[in-house]
């Protein structure tokens, strides 16, 4: 019994260590005062954070990430919510099951494949090297997260609430606005957060469809590590992690609010 417990603990800790070891390796380097991205750290400073927020390439990439992230969040949340409303708890006919699978497909299709396809298509419509192109590309991979989250909440909403609203005189549109959407809000919020996180993190599609003007933070890190391995990457990674933790906290909060409500 004790052996079992001990081995569980051991394997658990080993797994967690395996998952976060890269973070442990990179984060301290954000505070190095050396120009090289390696250990040992000769002294500590915040010069790379200054670099990150003052050097124009980095500044630009942060702004780009925010523009593209917000655009993606908006588009993916609207599309994903509408999609989830359509897929909601019908007796899933073969057609709808297929549609649902298609909605979730971008989660499993290799990004490289999507990237090649998008570049070809976007070139035809003049969308390569535009913000809109990058936003559309990110939206494709972000929508499944919204669909999954919103669908989960919608399936938990009692249909009779909507029936009650209709019987009390609410038109279908009013039922949607006053009952369905407010009750689905927690799912929509977490879907939106996932969409934003997906966009922030996306590199592969960005490489294919973004021009030099749409370099996102993730894309900038990618090229920096290949070109000059500056510790600014570590600082960027630190900002990223901080953002992620913030998102996780917001998610947890919105889930908690949802549970308190129902």
């Amino acid at each position: 019994m004790n052996v079992l417990r001990f081995s569980k603990l051991l394997f658990g800790s080993a797994t967690v260590f395996f998952l976060i070891a890269p973070l442990i390796a990179i984060l301290p380097l954000a505070f190095t005062d050396s120009v090289f991205l390696n250990y040992p750290i000769p002294g500590y400073s915040t010069r790379w954070f200054e670099e990150l927020f003052t050097a124009s390439v980095w500044q630009r990439s942060i702004v780009n990430s925010l523009i593209i992230g917000c655009g993606t969040t908006l588009l993916a949340t609207i599309l994903g919510t509408v999609g989830a409303l359509g897929l909601r708890d019908r007796q899933l006919s073969p057609v709808l099951t297929t549609i649902k699978t298609i909605f979730l497909l971008p989660m499993v299709v290799p990004a490289v494949v999507l990237g090649v396809g998008m570049q070809l298509m976007f070139a035809r419509y003049g969308l390569t090297n535009t913000y809109l192109g990058v936003i559309i590309a990110h939206t494709v991979v972000a929508v499944p997260f919204v669909v999954v989250n919103v669908l989960a909440v919608l399936q938990g909403i009692d249909r009779r609430l909507e029936q009650a609203a209709a019987s009390l005189g609410a038109t279908p549109v009013t039922v949607l606005k006053q009952v369905t959407l407010p009750l689905a809000l927690p799912g929509i919020v977490s879907g939106a957060i996932f969409a934003f996180a997906t966009s922030l993190d996306e590199v592969v599609l960005t490489l294919f469809v973004a021009g030099p003007n749409q370099r996102t933070l993730a894309r900038q890190m990618f090229s920096t590590i290949r070109e000059n391995i500056s510790p600014a990457i570590a600082a960027a990674a630190f900002v990223f992690i901080l953002g992620t933790i913030l998102i996780a906290i917001v998610l947890k909060f919105s889930r908690g609010a949802k549970q308190a409500n129902i």
């Binding site: 609203a165 209709a166 279908p172």
Partner: peptide, 28 residues
């Protein structure tokens, strides 16, 4: 459609709107 029938419906599980107060429910 239901919203044009002018019939009051009372459900077994009450079907009150959880995101509204009692008076908002009744005012609906």
């Amino acid at each position: 459609p239901p919203h044009r029938r002018n019939m009051g419906v009372v459900f077994q599980n009450y079907a009150l709107f959880p995101h509204m107060t009692v008076s908002e429910n009744v005012a609906f």
